[in-house]
Amino acid sequence: MEGEIAGEELGYRYIYIPSRTGKAPTLLLLHGMGGSERDLIPLAKTVSPESPVLSLRGKVVENGLRRFFRRIGEGVYDVEDLHYRSNEIADLIDIASRKHGFDRARIIAIGYSNGANMSVAIALIRPGALYGAVLIRPLFPLDIGRERLAGTPILILAGRRDRIAPPQESIKLAERLKRKGASVELHILDAGHEITDRDIELIRGWIERVGYDRSREGSMDIAGLSGII
């Protein structure tokens, strides 16, 4: 694709797509297990066409399939590796922002499945590394990270019929993140584990509301009629 730059830092292959305007947040894309750094680029271009994109390829390989962190078994994550990779990626963002010139302070992770889990870990282990995060079908039953998340906006998209990442887990995750101070929005969609058009619609709306403004209030537009014309 035109404008794409292939790069590698700290062992992570990535694609960087610059943007001509300066106002949009940068999107950090983290694919699902078995995927690649190409997977989420069309979604990113749809939800926020003006945003620079930094899309990573997972380094951990399990049975030939790429992931972002090691797991010991299904749903059993290698917590030490989780910490290691979180720090790696947070450092990578620092390096890449200097190398490619995007705004370090406003980078939003969009993660799908395993990528969503990685995004949660980064948010908890290196708070401040991310401006916000979109978690598509996460499964993160761990309670890690001791620091508070000062109003970090997080969008969680769960699927009612998702057998891989059950929606109840997302409800619990939302609670945990809120207790740590994050500003969480959770949608339970009429979907399974796959990404749907509705996910894309919601992500687009959320980035428009949250990605450009540092207000820490709940940014859901509550339709009061003050100041009606």
Partner: peptide, 18 residues
């Protein structure tokens, strides 16, 4: 009802199939 959305200060519930 079923909860399908939860945000700061606002939740959405649906009846039946929504």
């Amino acid at each position: 009802f079923r909860k399908i959305y939860e945000g700061p200060g606002r939740h959405r519930y649906v009846a039946d199939d929504g």
